[in-house]
Simulated assay, not measured.
Amino acid sequence: MSHTAHIPSHRKPRRSASKLALRAGVAGGVLSTIAVAGAAGPANAEPVTETIEMPTLGSLDTELASAVSASAEASHQEALDLSLRAQEDAAIAKAAQEAKKAKAEADRKAEAERAEKARAEAQERASRTQARTQLSPASSSSDSGSSDSGSSYSADSSTQAPTGSAAAIVAFARAQIGDAYVSGGTGPNSWDCSGLVQAAYRQAGIDLPRVSSSQSSMGTSVSLSNLQPGDILYWGSRSGSYHVAIYVGGGMYVGAQNPSTGVVERSLDWDTPSGAVRIL
């Protein structure tokens, strides 16, 4: 055999790189498939699925806005309730204060009226007592030395109506009967004793002083037994009388007595005057 003769080699033929890569890829894919299948469990097992609902941002914003709105409304309502309660408390306190003030004022007026009534009643009692003392039989002279307050009186029996100035004075005095007595009153619907006498004499064109002590100091003293309509009757001393009235005839006089009686017509026997003066 020739040295150059072809001897078949026992080496395996080299595989190409592309075939090797192809085989490696197939093997890797098979192994991966097996691994995945094994991890997933048996081939016939159903996949387990679970759905978790997550809140969306839109629903969270809506709920938050509703909560904030409800809280704000509650706070506003509470503030309104507190304001209303405060106003009610203030109104109650004010009403109580005004009621207390009104009661105090009413009590004050009532007390003043009671005091005035008591004073007038005491004055009236004192005048009657003093008149009886001055008209006792032992008394025979007046402040002026003439027999006026000390003399006993007798009602004139004449029924003849007064005339002239006396008639105007008597008519005015009687027209005021029923009017109220008010200290310091000068008419037209309320009087005190000297206010009524002054207004009556003004009807005859005669201006008298305002107070009783000055009125009883005017004119001429006359006896109670010689009275004429229009004469001024007084209680107390002539220069210090505390009450006056107008003699209207028939043993009667008209005067503004006190707050409880007002202007009345009374008999001389009811409250005998201390004396009388004549101005006409």
Rank of each mutant, 00 (worst) to 15 (best):
Q198N: 07
A199G: 03
G178H: 04
S141D: 09
S154T: 11
Q160R: 10
V211I: 15
S127A: 15
A131L: 04
Q97G: 14
Q203N: 04
D207T: 15
G205P: 08
G185Y: 02
S213T: 07
A112G: 02
A175I: 00
A161K: 11
Y153K: 00
G145W: 00
G150Y: 02
A204N: 08
P137Y: 01
S144G: 12
Q203T: 13
D179E: 10
S190N: 10
A131C: 07
P188F: 05
P188E: 10
A102R: 09
E98Q: 15
K117C: 09
G184D: 07
G164L: 10
S151T: 07
R128C: 08
D107P: 01
I177D: 13
A112K: 02
A199E: 05
D148A: 08
Y181E: 12
K117E: 13
Q134N: 15
S183I: 06
T159M: 09
Y201Q: 07
G164Y: 09
P209W: 03
S213W: 06
A168W: 00
R114Y: 08
Q123Y: 04
E116N: 13
T133R: 14
V211Q: 11
S190D: 07
S157E: 09
S146E: 10
A161M: 07
A167L: 11
Y153P: 05
A155T: 04
F172E: 09
G150W: 01
A131D: 05
V197L: 01
Q160Y: 04
A155S: 14
Y181N: 12
Q160K: 11
Y181R: 06
G195H: 04
L196R: 03
A155D: 06
R132S: 13
Q198Y: 02
A161Q: 13
A99Y: 12
S213R: 08
S183G: 08
Y201R: 02
L208N: 06
S146K: 10
S149I: 02
S139K: 04
Q97Y: 12
E111Q: 13
G195N: 02
S212I: 03
Q198E: 08
G187S: 07
A175G: 14
Q130E: 15
R174A: 05
G195D: 02
S151M: 06
N189V: 07
D207I: 06
E113Q: 12
L208K: 05
R128E: 13
R202T: 13
G205D: 07
A168K: 11
A122F: 05
L196T: 05
D148K: 00
A204Q: 06
P137C: 06
K101I: 13
I169Y: 14
R114K: 13
A167I: 04
A120I: 01
D156A: 14
Q134W: 14
G187P: 05
R128M: 11
I206M: 08
R128N: 10
R108F: 10
R174Q: 15
S136N: 11
R125T: 13
T159Q: 14
S154D: 07
A126C: 03
E98C: 03
E124L: 10
R125G: 12
T159V: 11
